[in-house]
């Protein structure tokens, strides 16, 4: 027979003492020790449970209920304290674990595409969106395709426009432009309409200097169909320029001469560096010359297998390295084939 009030009083003091001890717990180890001491199998409150059997039937429910309340209170307090301590620990670690974020990062071993490839791909993408597909042709070409079929007969003064590398095989040369591809493509497509991009390495017999190279990429576009006009040429080039240089860029055409187009023109775009106000890149003029173009010459159409009275078309050609030089302010064209990593790494 026990004294019920004493039992209940005892439970209250168990709770008070445990909570008081919990206050002073400061770490995970202390927390676990506290739990063993106050909620473990041999803790005071659990002993009350295990001793319930010794109580009278009348006392049992009330003591049990009270003990349960104490247990719940202690568990609640434990969880709360545990949370507090975890938060405090996190806070401490956040404060202590500080990096010098200005230390250099560890470099991954990255590769890169050559800038010429990047330029070509950009042009393929833009022109591809406009329905032009890449058609490639050979580097070592016949005089016939490089000149004659393009309306540049032997000894014609227009040949002075191209300083040519010849091979020891008569009539075989290094193409001076991608235009032989016009004939290759037309002869393959005729009489279907043509809309192709002609990219590739071209060669000119020129002293290598910061401004001129013996080899360079060229990209041409060629469109042949019934009813293609000079207005279409302008519209297509305007769209092309906007995609490449910005939605607001202005363009203009100046009359020019190429034997394989007529009318022929040079296209200038408003300087994308200064917006046309004049700067060192555009040499103060506000304009940058970026491509040559024109309506395909009737002789070339005929040589390609199209009747010039029925079909018309346009061609336009540009030097992607030259455009890249303007864009990235590359001062020396020799960088492109020099392959110095200090150049390549910048793209």
């Amino acid at each position: 027979m026990t004294d019920l009030p004493i039992l209940l009083q005892n439970l209250t003091s168990i709770q008070e003492q445990a909570l008081a001890e919990l206050e002073s717990v400061q770490d995970e180890a202390g927390l676990q020790a506290w739990r063993t001491a106050h909620l473990g199998r041999s803790s005071a409150v659990m002993r009350v449970f295990s001793d319930l059997g010794k109580l009278s039937k009348e006392e049992r429910p009330q003591v049990g209920q009270n003990a349960n309340q104490v247990k719940l209170a202690l568990e609640g307090a434990f969880n709360l304290r545990s949370d507090e301590l975890r938060q405090a620990a996190l806070q401490r670690s956040l404060q202590n674990e500080r990096l010098d974020v200005t230390l250099p990062g560890r470099a991954p071993t990255l590769g890169s595409l050559h800038p010429a490839t990047q330029n070509l791909r950009e042009i393929y993408r833009v022109l591809g969106d406009m329905g032009f597909q890449v058609y490639r042709a050979r580097d070592v070409e016949s005089d016939e395709y490089n000149f004659e079929l393009l309306n540049i007969p032997a000894h014609h003064p227009a040949r002075d426009m191209w300083d040519t590398f010849h091979t020891l095989t008569p009539g075989v040369l290094l193409r001076t432009h991608t235009s032989p591809g016009q004939i290759h493509a037309m002869r393959e497509y005729a009489p279907d309409p043509v809309r192709v991009i002609l990219p590739g390495m071209c060669y000119r017999y020129e002293q290598i200097s910061a401004r001129s190279e013996i080899q360079f990429n060229q990209v041409e576009m060629l469109a042949i169909d019934k009813g293609i006009t000079f207005g279409d040429l302008k519209g297509t080039l305007n769209d092309f320029a906007r995609r490449l240089f910005g939605d607001e860029v202005r363009t203009r055409l100046r009359p020019s001469y190429f034997p394989f187009t007529e009318p022929s023109a040079e296209m200038d775009v408003e300087c994308f560096v200064c917006g046309g106000k004049g700067c060192p890149i555009c040499k103060g003029s506000g304009w940058l010359e970026i491509l040559g173009c024109g309506m395909v010459h009737p002789t070339v159409l005929k040589n390609g297998g199209y009747d010039p009275a029925v079909y018309s078309g346009f061609a336009a050609g540009m030097g992607p390295e030259r455009i890249a030089m303007l864009r990235y302010r590359i001062t020396d064209i020799r960088y492109f084939w020099g392959n110095d990593v200090r150049f390549l790494e910048q793209f």
Partner: peptide, 15 residues
């Protein structure tokens, strides 16, 4: 040249 209106290529897309 700059008085000729620019138009968008209306010819059908080749195969």
């Amino acid at each position: 040249y700059n008085n000729i209106p620019a138009v968008r290529l209306s010819a059908s897309l080749p195969r």
